[in-house]
């Protein structure tokens, strides 16, 4: 069974982070939120495994509202 990877896994982390911020360049807040939603959906499909997705969803929620 796959589990959510939380150890470093992105090959060039600074490049990724820059690309992520770049995605939002010149976007209104609403467009940015829309792009974020699209990105989440694309990545979720790439991951595919519902268990991993549920773990990520739980970790994301805990990061803003600890249980």
């Amino acid at each position: 069974m796959q589990t959510l990877i939380v150890e470093p896994n992105i090959v060039r982390p600074d490049d990724f982070y820059e690309a992520l911020i770049d995605m939002h360049r010149d976007l209104t807040d609403e467009q940015s939120q829309m792009a974020n939603a699209a990105l989440i959906l694309l990545l979720a499909n790439h991951i595919g495994d519902l268990g991993v997705l549920r773990e990520a969803i739980a970790a994301a929620r805990t990061s803003v509202k600890p249980t």
Partner: peptide, 23 residues
């Protein structure tokens, strides 16, 4: 708002991406 955002993002993606049609 956020559920509308995901809904609309899904619909937009579904035109070009088969995976989103399933959603």
């Amino acid at each position: 708002n956020v559920s509308r955002m995901f809904r609309d993002a899904t619909l937009k993606l579904s035109k070009d991406h088969a995976f989103a049609r399933r959603l």
